[in-house]
Design a protein around this nucleic acid. Structure first.
Length: 215
DNA sequence: AACTCGGGGCA
DNA sequence: TGCCCAGAGTT
């Protein structure tokens, strides 16, 4: 047809093709489990979180279970994730709030989720998009870096990045787009020494073209 | 805007 | 041994 695809469309199409099988890498079978796994994932990797939750969720996997846990008991399971005292405290407090305020069900709006202790915008959006199939794009360090490099966004903060991504990515692809960006960020578009030479997007990447011009 | 929480993985 | 890692809360 006559109309040429713009760069954003091209980028999304390549990402989709390249990361067709990308899924949420965290272990979970319920919204609550995803919430806990995502809370644990701060400043660590999915491998570490999965190692911890694989054992943890066999014993405890509902807000009712977690709200009764002793801090020390929970810390024992999640110590390998790091920042474990804060995380244990927040997880237990969040579980109490879910039971008392939301009838034991994880709330499914951004406003409610970010009121849970230890839950910020990123964690809330992961739960919304992955557990509840809501229209949301979670922006973590990978998404922020990669989308800015590619030119899908051009922003200094998370809020702005979310808005720009929602504008530049077709709605029906929002739920998967952040997985594609995260996987790309880990495999190729790393913070340091990105593997631009083998990147399937380098020919339309803003960052790569800037680098080339400066050399 | 800077500071703090933090054990594990990997060079 | 040193550096980094799917953030969030406090000051």
């Amino acid at each position: 047809m006559g109309e040429r695809m713009n760069n954003n469309e091209k980028i999304i199409n390549i990402l989709e093709k390249e990361y067709k099988d990308a899924r949420c890498a965290l272990n979970f079978t319920t919204p609550f489990e995803l919430l806990i796994a995502t809370m644990l994932s701060a400043q660590t990797t999915d491998l570490t979180v999965n190692k911890a939750t694989e054992i943890l969720f066999k014993k405890y996997n509902t807000p009712e279970d977690f709200r009764r846990l002793d801090n020390k008991e929970l810390e024992k399971y999640i110590k390998i994730c790091g920042l474990y005292k804060t995380k244990a405290k927040n997880i237990i407090e969040a579980s109490k709030k879910i039971v008392t305020d939301y009838d034991g069900k994880v709330p499914s709006t951004l406003e409610e989720l970010i009121k849970l202790p230890g839950v910020g915008r990123k964690t809330a959006n992961v739960v919304l998009s992955n557990a509840f199939n809501k229209d949301a794009i979670a922006v973590d360090t990978h998404v922020y870096r990669v989308s800015n490099r590619l030119g899908l966004s051009n922003s200094k903060d998370v809020n702005e990045t979310e808005e720009q991504l929602m504008k530049n990515i077709p709605k029906e692809k929002w739920s998967n787009a952040h997985h594609w960006l995260i996987w790309h960020g880990r495999k190729i578009c790393s913070a340091k020494n990105p593997k631009c030479s083998i990147c399937p997007l380098n020919h339309i990447c803003k960052y790569y073209n800037e680098i080339k011009e400066n050399n």
